[in-house]
Amino acid sequence: MSRKIERLINLTIALLATKRFLTKKEIFASVDGYEGSAETKERMFERDKDDLRNLGIDIDVGGFDPAFDDEAGYRIKSDKYSLDLGDISGVEIALLSLAAEAWRGAALDSAAQSALLKLKSMGIDSDLDSIPSISPAIRTPHTDFEIISRAISQRRTLSFSYLSKQLDIQTRTIAPYAIATQQSFWYLAGMDLDKESIRTFRLDRFQGEITIGKEANTFEIPTDFDILKSLNTDASNEIATIDIRKGKAHLMRSSALSVTDLGEWDRVTVPFFDLAKMVDLVLWHGDDVFVISPEHLRNSVIAALATIVDLHG
């Protein structure tokens, strides 16, 4: 196996060092490790190119020089191969180290650590002393991150099985736009290619494997797309007026827009996006909350209460 590794490294060095495109003939003649029949060498080279691309190394193809023959040439551009973050300070290295440490034990731990090694290779000492002692931590057990992030970055589609509201397993295919966390859950947003509209999906409702599209650059992400906005605008934003018993319903109070003291009760206004979720939240608080308006929220709560009485009476 070492032979293959040596050959891949030598190929990388040769393609990086060359100023002009190298033809396959030149590569086979000069790079160590290409042996056997013409066909064998050809196959080896094709596989090596794929392997390097899988490692994220871009190989440029070009240089059809009529003075020689019509053969394509290859090279690796040094500015694409190497990390260029411009000038970077010790403070910046320290902040990046904290960012990488936040993944300790979570989904992207190994990617974060290898990123950190590359940053440390720039030979700049981390200036940790100038940063207050904070210890941010990401707690994400999901392992689908890598495939999802690759799909977003390369503009490839994703197909997956998703648990619907009725517990059916549905197959969805989307053009992924963005991922985000909200209230401890991770969401993926994108254009649902069957439904032809933007949808958001909770990652823990994915079932089984995710498949990534074979072709890259199949769609464009709207430049003004904001995932947090799309998570919160399932329906139009409404404001409810609700009476809350003093010292109760902290979940609801935390999003209150205004509070008026009524003595034993407070009258608060809270925004809501989804009628069904708001009904659930009102009912969760039992007789500590009482809906004043809007009418349709009040009617939905009354209808739900009537059903609960029927079922349990």
């Binding site: 694409k80 990390l83 990046l96 960012a99 993944w103 990617a111 904070i134 941010p136 990401i138 690759r150």
Partner: peptide
Amino acid sequence: TLARPRNLTIEEAIALLLGLDLVVQSLP
């Protein structure tokens, strides 16, 4: 020829970006 660090992979960049987003929010 190989002395400069390699470019970040997409996963590495995403890990750092999410981590930095959290760092920004954690700073006093």
